[in-house]
């Protein structure tokens, strides 16, 4: 108890002796850390964009480097500039946590969420994710928020604490390729075998498709009271081309359907997903 009081007294003394010089050095270190993390993020992003194959692997390093740089900067300021010993450091952390934990609870939740995302690799920069109600490519994992670019090119900042409260779905989990599935609906009287063959050929001949033993193409037929639905499941070779892939396959499929007389259903389509 006496030790705790002594240490608290020492910390207070240490803070009382903070001079303008120490504050300036601290600000300098913080600015350097921010600049360094920005430069590293910029360089790694440039390198990753040049290498299609290793784009996502390289981008994984960006949030890790940020955590490392900011942690080192904070540690350096506290231990060297303010010259606090390790036990004083721990005590200070406790005091700060208790003092401002209630006031800035959300901010600390976001920071904790950011650390969890980076350490657990819930998702990575470059992944396509569904987080809360937002869907898109992860552009940046910050301490407070994750920036997502939606298919409409909106930049959304989703707070990191959503990882604790919402389910996060990732379409590719660190891979460059991603499963993209879509449905095509045809009239009940249409030749389903022919339609399946055309759709399969449209998928496997697409310039955006990626096929491997672990990334197969699957074409499924489903029957409904007034129409038939065909589902194509395949991997797009670059997740950024998900929508181009769908458009390419659907366009060529319907061109071919028209040639062989396969028609769209006359009945109103019910959502396939709703029925399954």
């Amino acid at each position: 108890m006496v030790d705790l009081e002594t240490e608290t007294g020492n910390i207070i003394t240490a803070f009382e002796h903070i001079d303008a010089n120490a504050v300036l050095i601290s600000v300098g270190i913080i600015i350097t850390a921010v600049l360094l993390s920005k430069i590293i993020a910029f360089v790694l992003t440039k390198i990753s964009e040049m290498s299609w194959k290793y784009r996502l692997h390289i981008k994984t390093i960006i949030p890790l480097s940020k955590v490392l740089i900011y942690s080192l900067a904070i540690y350096y300021i506290i231990s060297t500039v303010f010259a606090l010993a390790m036990n004083q450091l721990l005590l200070l952390s406790g005091l700060i946590g208790a003092g401002i934990g209630f006031g800035l609870r959300n901010l600390f939740e976001d920071i904790a969420g950011g650390v969890v995302i980076v350490m657990e690799k819930t998702f990575q920069v470059g992944d396509i994710i569904q987080m809360g109600k937002y869907y898109g490519e992860v552009k940046e994992i910050g301490f407070r928020s994750t920036r997502i670019v939606t298919p409409n090119d909106d930049l959304v900042s989703a707070p990191n604490n959503l990882v604790f409260t919402e389910c996060v779905a990732t379409g590719n989990a660190g891979s460059s390729e991603m499963m993209a599935s879509f449905d095509v609906y045809i009239d009940n009287n249409a030749d389903a075998d022919m339609a399946l063959k055309i759709l399969e050929e449209a998928v496997v001949t697409s310039r955006y498709v990626f096929i491997s033993p672990t990334r197969p193409v699957v074409i499924l037929l489903n029957d409904h009271p007034f129409y038939k639905s065909l589902k194509a499941r395949a991997y797009v070779n670059d997740l950024r081309d998900e929508f181009l892939y769908r458009s390419d396959v659907i366009r060529r499929t319907w061109n071919e359907f028209h040639k062989v007389g396969i028609k769209a259903p006359k009945a109103q389509i019910l959502s396939y997903d709703e029925n399954n």
């Binding site: 299609w52 096929i211 070779n237 670059d238």
Partner: peptide
């Protein structure tokens, strides 16, 4: 083309 994943 390997990098673009057109060549498998």
């Amino acid at each position: 083309l390997e990098d673009c994943r057109l060549v498998w």
